[in-house]
Amino acid sequence: MLSAPEVVELYFLETRCALLDIAATLDRLDRAAETSAPGDDPRVSQLYQALELLADRATSGDRVERLLQLFSDLD
């Protein structure tokens, strides 16, 4: 297994890239909503809920599982 500094070293740039992709998608959505009705697609709220979940630094290490739950139809 890698040490914590090794994890940062190996995955920082990939994660930075993933964050930029998310930012670009949300910007694209906002720009599109300026000219067309935004609608109320529940998937947009899911994305923001997911980001809230990730922003909590003092949380348990099952983020992926909780995100997958969030994106699941449970009933």
Binding site: L13, C17, L20, D21, A24, T25, R31
Partner: peptide
């Protein structure tokens, strides 16, 4: 692939 601009972001800038 990782360190500069992605195709999607490039098209965003082409649109802006």
């Amino acid at each position: 692939p990782i360190t500069k601009c992605s195709p999607q972001r490039a098209v965003d800038m082409l649109e802006r």
